[in-house]
């Protein structure tokens, strides 16, 4: 199968997120890392490819700045092609705008299976998997794992809350939002990526963008954080009551 993995990078949450005076993310001063779920999707794609000699994996990223290393890393891990969709894009590109570009590219390439992370930490206006599928009119499922290839279909497990799940069969072309790969995403050594940078090249393809609905963000702000637990004292009965209340409040009790 012709598999595409849509990957993007997101701010590294390890670092403090800084805001500009206008209340926007100070993207220029931040470090970006591949979205962890996209890493899972890439791993799942590579596992599928390893189990099926005829499959190819294309890693696709929109050139919002500095995505080369991420794509070379995907190549070093075993992807066959690294595609950079170029155009007038920047770090603040919304997911809706991304989905337009990605859907257009996927449509022209005719991928059978499109994998991406189930979500990313910056999906304010929707998750890529559903957005791209909606634009393509393709079969899709999110929060899935354990993908298996058929001849003109794929199967996977979709997870619901409370331990429920379903096995789905999707006709290709299909878009999947991967929750977790069958195994931890593989490590790739620094020198392997460096060698890739020397020996391989990325395909730069002009990204076709079209109008997409945009949201107006009034402000971004950090939640009030406490650095110490709120203490509930030492009375066992009261503590137990409080914990049960908290569980109820947070909808963590099985109904």
């Amino acid at each position: 199968m012709k598999i595409a993995v849509l990957i993007k990078d997101v701010p590294d949450l390890v670092e403090e997120l800084e805001l500009t005076e206008e209340g926007r993310l100070a993207v220029d001063d931040m470090s970006f890392v591949p979205s962890e779920w996209d890493d899972q999707a890439l791993e799942e794609a590579l596992i599928l490819k390893e189990g099926d000699a005829g499959s190819t994996v294309t890693a696709v990223a929109i050139d919002t700045g500095d995505v080369d290393n991420m794509l070379f890393t995907a190549l070093a891990k075993g992807a066959d092609r690294g595609v950079k969709l170029v155009g007038d894009f920047n770090r603040e590109m919304s997911n809706r705008a991304r989905a337009e570009v990605l859907a257009h590219y996927c449509h022209t390439e005719g991928f059978d299976l499109i994998l991406t992370g189930v979500q990313a930490i910056d999906d304010l206006d929707g998750q890529i998997a559903g957005l791209v599928a909606g634009r393509l009119g393709a079969a899709h499922a999110s929060v899935v794992r354990d993908v298996a290839l058929g001849s003109t279909s794929v199967t996977c497990i979709q997870e619901y809350s409370g331990g429920k799940m379903a096995e789905l069969r999707l006709t290709v072309p299909a878009v999947l939002g991967i929750q977790a790969a069958q195994k931890t995403p593989r490590y790739v050594t620094v020198s392997k990526v460096r060698q890739m940078q020397k020996s391989a090249s990325l395909e730069e393809i002009e990204g076709e963008s079209s109008e997409a609905p945009a949201l107006e963000i009034r402000r971004l702000y950090p939640p009030v954080a406490s650095s110490h637990a709120e203490m509930w004292g030492d009375d066992v009965e009261e503590l137990a009551d409080r914990i049960v209340n908290l569980l109820e409040e947070k909808k963590l009790l099985r109904s």
Binding site: D12, V14, E15, E16, S31, V33, Y187, V190
Partner: peptide
């Protein structure tokens, strides 16, 4: 990966 990204083994910001 933390060494590569943050320069330390604790996964803490370099800062």
């Amino acid at each position: 990966m933390s060494w590569d990204r943050q320069g330390n083994s604790f996964g803490q910001p370099g800062r």
